[in-house]
Design a protein around this nucleic acid. Sequence first.
DNA 1: TTTAGCACTCACGGGGTAGGAGTGCTAACC
DNA 2: GGTTAGCACTCCTACCCCGTGAGTGCTAAA
Lengths: 345, 345
Amino acid sequence: MVFQIDERKRKILQAVVRSFILTGKPVGSGAVAELAGLKVSSATIRNEMATLEELGLLIQPHTSAGRVPTDIAYRFYVDMLMGQTRPSLRDAEAIEKLFDARTREIEGLFQEASVLLSRLTHTTAMVFAPFSAADSVRHVELVRLGDRRVMVVIITSKGQVGRRLIALDRDVKGDTVERVSTFLIRSVAGVPLDSIDAAGITGRARFGEAGRELLAGALDAVCEYLGAIEDRVFIGGTANIVREMDVAGSEWAQVLLEAMEKQYFILDLLKELLRERRLTVRIGEENSLRELQRCAFVGTSYPIGSGLLGSLGVVGPTCMDYERTISMVELMAESLGRRFLQTMD
Amino acid sequence: MVFQIDERKRKILQAVVRSFILTGKPVGSGAVAELAGLKVSSATIRNEMATLEELGLLIQPHTSAGRVPTDIAYRFYVDMLMGQTRPSLRDAEAIEKLFDARTREIEGLFQEASVLLSRLTHTTAMVFAPFSAADSVRHVELVRLGDRRVMVVIITSKGQVGRRLIALDRDVKGDTVERVSTFLIRSVAGVPLDSIDAAGITGRARFGEAGRELLAGALDAVCEYLGAIEDRVFIGGTANIVREMDVAGSEWAQVLLEAMEKQYFILDLLKELLRERRLTVRIGEENSLRELQRCAFVGTSYPIGSGLLGSLGVVGPTCMDYERTISMVELMAESLGRRFLQTMD
DNA sequence: TTTAGCACTCACGGGGTAGGAGTGCTAACC
DNA sequence: GGTTAGCACTCCTACCCCGTGAGTGCTAAA
């Protein structure tokens, strides 16, 4: 949507948005006259603001109040009026520190990234890790836990490790487990998931009863695991939803919190970003998720190697500080991506 | 604390607590006269309630309001007045269904247990999994990911699986990795963590430069992992905090949500339960955590095999339905424990 | 086109009041 | 002595009224 808006209207709109983001209160013509740096009186501003209201960029909560930006105004602001902010040194350092820390569980890193991002932006942050992109097995290991109990450990091409327990009907010996294990590795390592031919593999196998049972169970487990690997979402800063609640009402906060717990909702949202491949800002009703239509979403994707992408984003009030939020999201995505390209091969 | 309370006062107190739990509104003498099933007038009840107030069991929010139970009254109610409830068939089935489902990642089971428990009790539920109780290595596996990149997979005596990446300064060949792997398993499997003698093991090793580097790195990783295994808390139903907010105020809801995000707080709470070894109810200021002093906590422990315990609990308003909550917590602990004793050895 | 002036609108907050729920007290009753 | 009806009293709640002030739209003049 392109607006026929002259320079003065832009400056006025900019002043309204900035002031409202700062104070959260409707902005009057007098305040704009001071803030916008225009050498005209408040009466002139009033005329202009009336026009901006007709264009759907501003609304009045009630007759004698100042103006509040609409979602469309925020969109215009983000696209056309907003300046670029370099993230402050403090913030950049905080993010660097996160990634400096000792190698740890990859899940922990994602979780901490989401918490840090939420703290830096005063929003709720979400980091999407596309674990399910793994499509073949790098390694399988069978570990005998008891006479009839074996653990299958599966390492995928993406480096995730999964385990499944198998309960057997027969006792199985240690050397059988080892032989089956070796056979299994040869049979499935490097084979894409959809090409694993369970029947063919069990057919080729030459083991006793217990061995065959174990092999079948293990194959089952491998296929089931690969099929069930879940993309994961890490969410941090849900408490911030409550902080912003006075802006948006408490029943809404509860709905949003519940949506955050049902992570598959959020998953779809973050998956869309993978297609976009660039910074995306969705304001109010631009969001397809009903729960987010009173919020703004800022997200982007980050590389995790082999041409694959993850994504991350934040949800906050539509009157968020877009400059800062966007620069934080970009910085976090960049750092996370850099870290991945270093760590993975 | 023992109270000299006759039968009639008990019935009155019981009626006040039950009514307040149900309605959330102060209970007047008239309402009690109807509910308590006593054949006395509201005037008599008024006299009795005045006595109960002197005893510190009831308070009036203001002069001309009904009475509200104090924390002490809830305590008395839970200890002396409360009936036992069998969980309804529906609820029992919901829990059974959770554990019926196909074997899956153990973390997923905990997470779902916490979500289900929160839904059944309308509270925020927490499940503590004492992963750090693992004290020895059952199995180690080295997987070569690249020329200078090896993944260590560690399986502990408790069945958790961890992985660490090692970056090497030298290229390492596949058969070297295998030999080091075999050697490593012999050296550390079954050995308690504090008895692993890294220097001794590397001393005994007969490998080339690359092999020694790999072994040292892998040992490092094993020790670091065992040391860093974290007890984990799974939290479900945080949205319920907001639902109960009107009872308790929004700034408090935010504090509580933040406490839930800082899981180590909750960890201490749940660890205490391991010592108690039985159902524990903490009401209001009985909680040592300041964040919980306006809430009630109901928790218990569950066996995870080998004499070890995990714990779980819920946090809700002090005016929660104690009968139902307690029976749900007990049922969930029992089911979770049963599941563990079946699965583990 | 801009601006000063002005009447108008309407949310907000304070103060006053009617209504009502529930109390404590007292005196009569069993 | 315990119980109860009656009653005055308290105090919260909801409501309305109204003054205040911020901010508007309109008009007429510059």
